[in-house]
Design a protein around this nucleic acid. Structure first.
Length: 827
RNA sequence: GGGGCGGUGGCGGAAUUGGCAGACGCAGGGGACUUAAAAUCCCCCGGUUCACACCAUGUGGGUUCAAGUCCCACCCGCCCUACCA
């Protein structure tokens, strides 16, 4: 302590916190620069959208991540913790339409406000690395990446049915359509289908790599979501033909059931329908097609088990046995998956079964478990389990298991045969679609492409980037993109032939901007490329990425795709952008509902900081729930964290009690200190923030007890106080700094100190409480030396006063001794 | 229909991975200090019971000397996904 001067100041976070925040930033304390002598650690949290106000959810995502980054820094890593803004997007444009404010102005005002708010958290953000995706210096490279993807055949334009949000007036990627009612990810409006020509990225080219997580430590939950989203199915393409000889290939996961195919079903919009439909069925088919077209996908899905369809009058030939089977159309077959056509095996597929029963179509069982005798006319449901093939010519008696694809020996045999006979081939199908990135909106990065009547589509020459968004735009109430309406912006010349040409007026999905922001942080000022390769080499990959799980099938797939694509274009190294991912849960309102302005249950971090100080808010956010689960906010609970910090303050600033503690008290205190240190170190690694704060609270209680016993005057006390502050520093950085420099008189800054080392000797207890059980029930606890022998422990337990009465006159059948822990006497 | 996560006091949650269930905190009760309140400090706080003791980790079985933890069956809640061939 600085002499014996005792501070009698009150804990005043409102004074302390801004002072340190200013000093840390002025000193560049958290600036992260390349330092080859130290091991790097790139800590990243998902960048916020500048909606205008920092939400408690932002704090919940950021504060514990910041504490952990600080912990890593104290462990000696060279930690980079950057921040930026995902600044393009629709809300800005909606503000423009409803309030007449320009999206750029709206966005940048919000960013300014949020920068101020973010600084009140006392994070270790290196603000020199900030990147804003709506800056021309940023989106110049977003556009550049588009061109690289285009030049490498990973971006293409295609006419197809796409999802359209009528509210947002734009197309959406498949991933951005949510729920069983198929609503827009942004605004919740039900989407509709439109046939449009749009730009896509070939995410499907990386389908297999996207479900390989062997090189990253990502939560099972995200892995499962992404795996399901990619939806890989193994099976075979089988070459059917129509009676007239037209090819009609289908994909099936069950080529082993080919002999049981009794009809085929095409999606109503399948191109072959027109050709095969016979005149007498034409009207019914046309009607059905019209009906299907008018049904939204919700209705198509909502029809649930009720199967509908019509016969086309056409027939196909089953290639494996020459059987002539009718071709139907039905809306349970989707044009967008596989070939939009299936072979129907009603005996072994639930949907086909329902359809066959509905329309009286033939059912032929071809797989049968031993001891079972299936009859197609009486079967009550499709059989989808394992068994032996029957009614399948030379394959009869072949065993088929539950395994998928080639791992199923029966399937493998059939596939080999199909390939040998030229009737089909092994195939894999995916649910994943290519990423539709065109948006019919203004406030985004313009797609840098030019259309010329003579030369078609060409990219804008790289030296002309960025293609700047014009500022002088106007909005119609319809929400139509002002870029289309701009009098001159579209007009340009063809980069190829020099004649008049037209710019693409669509902008890019903002997920494109956020697919590479972690790279822009490396060198936000760099002008010779999207990032400085030197910085890349040192900092990448991201060591820990934190954020919400809601992006599992969007941002987190896109960014992995992006990284792999860049790797294949020779722009980056490594297979994955982020080595480790952890998701925080969501903070709900006090009513247990999702926070929203309309519900009036929004918790404002600014109010909390004003009232309690940032350290209290940080500490409470770490403490109040399991970080990965989140939960309802409890405004009363925060007082516990407030008291904790007050008690810390008082412990360091109040005069110690009289007297001197015994050596035993000091030893016990140090043991408690190191036990907590050991646990907290582990908990930081595991993202178990709530128990970090509990351990610190518990330890503080122990310190108070020790001080009451006189420990405040022992020579060891100073070191105990120092260590405790170091342990608090990542979680509550301001109070730790203040007490460290101003009360303990240690050199600035506590945040440049190393995390204390656990003294293993202090973890060794010399006395332990031995639990004595009789038949598994607790009967006594006895303090014994920690290294007590088995025999000795047994002896002590048998003689213990708590257990003895239960043992009297009983025969002891067995005694289980867990050394240093427990003795269970079985009678 | 498929997949995932979860169910422990009034509440948020602990529990060294099979070894004292309920750490830490909130709320509540009692007390000290105070003219009073706030703040602070001390004690109590799963249930039944005067107590001894017994019962308790969604329910029912099982394995084990010992189960919140492992196995089987079921119930409930939340999230994702969906005629995916």
């Amino acid at each position: 302590m600085t002499g014996s001067i005792v501070m009698v100041r009150e804990y005043n976070p409102q004074e302390i916190e801004p002072r340190w925040q200013r000093k840390w930033e002025a000193d560049g304390l958290y600036n992260a620069d390349i330092d080859e002598t130290r091991e790097k650690f790139y800590a990243l949290t998902m960048l916020p959208y500048p909606s205008g106000d920092l939400h408690i959810g932002h704090w919940y995502a950021l504060a514990p991540s910041d504490a952990r980054a600080r912990f890593k820094r104290m462990q000696g890593y060279n930690v980079m913790f950057p921040m930026g803004f995902d600044a393009f997007g629709l809300p800005a444009e909606n503000a423009a339409i409803s309030r007449g404010i320009h999206p750029k102005q709206w966005t940048y005002q919000n960013i300014d406000h949020m920068r101020v708010q973010l600084r009140t958290m006392g994070t270790m953000i290196d603000w020199r690395r900030e990147a804003v995706s709506a800056d021309p210096s940023y989106y110049r490279w977003t556009q550049w990446f588009f061109i690289q993807l285009y030049n490498n055949d990973l971006a293409y334009r295609k006419y197809s049915p796409v999802d359209w949000c009528p509210q947002c007036n734009t197309t959406l990627a498949r991933e951005q359509v949510h729920g069983d009612d198929r609503h827009c990810e942004r605004c919740g409006t039900q989407v509709i289908k439109k046939d449009l020509e749009q730009w896509f990225f070939k995410t499907t080219q990386y389908a297999d790599e996207l479900i390989d997580f062997s090189q990253i430590d990502w939560p099972d939950r995200v892995r499962t979501l992404q795996t399901n989203w990619v939806g890989r199915s193994e099976g075979a393409d089988v070459y059917f033909k129509t009676e007239d000889g037209d090819e009609l290939t289908v994909f099936t996961t069950r080529p082993d059931t080919l002999w049981g195919a009794t009809f085929m079903v095409l999606a109503p919009e399948h191109p072959l329908v027109e050709k095969i439909t016979t005149p007498e069925h034409l009207e019914a088919v046309k009607n059905y097609q019209l009906e299907a077209e008018n049904k939204t996908e919700i209705q198509r899905a909502a029809a649930d088990k009720e199967k509908t369809g019509v016969f086309t009058g056409g027939y196909a030939i089953n290639p494996v046995n020459g059987a002539r089977i009718p071709i139907w159309i039905a809306d349970y077959v989707m044009m967008g998956y596989g070939y939009g056509a299936i072979m129907a095996v009603p005996a072994h597929d639930e949907r086909d079964f329902a359809f066959a029963r509905q329309y009286g179509l033939e059912i032929i069982p071809v797989i049968q478990p031993e001891g079972e005798e299936f009859d197609g006319t009486t079967m009550e449901e499709a059989y989808v389990g394992p068994g032996l093939m029957i009614n399948s010519a030379q394959f009869d008696s072949t065993a088929v298991t539950n395994a998928k694809g080639r791992k199923n020996p029966g399937l493998a045999k059939v596939i080999d045969w199909l390939e040998a006979e030229g009737l089909g081939e092994e195939a894999v199908s995916y649910k994943l679609r290519d990423w539709l990135i065109s948006r019919q909106r203004y406030w985004g990065a313009p797609i840098p492409m030019v259309y010329c009547e003579n030369c078609g589509w060409n990219p804008v020459p790289e030296n002309e980037l960025p293609v700047l968004l014009p500022d002088d735009v106007e909005w119609l109430p319809t929400g139509e993109s002002p870029l289309k309406l701009h009098p001159t912006w579209k007009g340009t010349v063809c980069p190829s032939c020099g004649k008049d040409a037209i710019r693409e007026t669509d902008t890019m999905d903002t997920f494109m901007c956020s697919s590479w922001y972690h790279l822009r942080y490396l060198s936000p000022e760099y002008a010779n490329g999207p990032f400085d390769p030197k910085e890349y080499k040192y900092w990448m990959p991201v060591d820990i990425y934190t954020g919400g799980i809601e992006h599992a099938n969007m941002h987190l797939i896109y960014t992995r795709f992006f990284h792999k694509a860049l790797r294949d274009m020779g722009l980056t190294e490594g297979n994955e952008p982020m080595s480790q991912l952890r998701n925080q849960g969501m903070v709900l309102g006090e009513d247990g509902e999702k926070m929203s302005k309309s519900r009036g249950n929004v918790v404002s971090p600014d109010d909390l900081v004003n009232r309690y100080g940032a350290d209290t808010v940080r500490g409470y956010l770490m403490f109040f729930a399991r970080w990965d689960l989140g939960g309802p906010w409890n405004s009363k609970g925060i007082s516990g964290t407030e008291r904790w910090l007050n008690r810390i303050w008082n412990l360091y600033t109040e005069a110690p009690e009289e007297g001197l503690a015994s050596a035993g008290v000091i030893k016990e205190t140090k043991q408690a200190l190191h036990a907590a240190l050991d646990r907290i170190t582990r908990d930081y690694e595991r993202f178990e923030f709530n128990t970090i704060i509990s351990s610190l609270m518990e330890l503080l209680n122990t310190l108070y007890e020790a001080r009451r016993a006189g420990a405040g005057n022992n020579p060891e006390w100073q070191e105990i106080l120092e260590t405790y502050l170091l342990m608090c520093a990542p979680a509550v950085p301001h109070i730790a700094e203040e007490l460290w420099t101003e009360v303990l008189g240690k050199p600035y800054s506590i945040h440049d100190q190393l995390w204390p080392e656990v003294d293993p000797e202090m973890l060794v207890q010399d006395e332990v409480t031995l639990i004595v059980q009789v038949n598994g029930k607790l009967r006594d606890r006895i303090n014994v030396p920690a290294n007590i022998s088995k025999e000795e422990a047994e002896k002590v337990a048998l003689a213990s006063p708590g257990a003895a009465p239960y043992l009297e006159g009983k025969e002891i059948r067995k005694v289980v001794v867990v050394p240093g822990r427990l003795v269970n006497i079985v009678i």
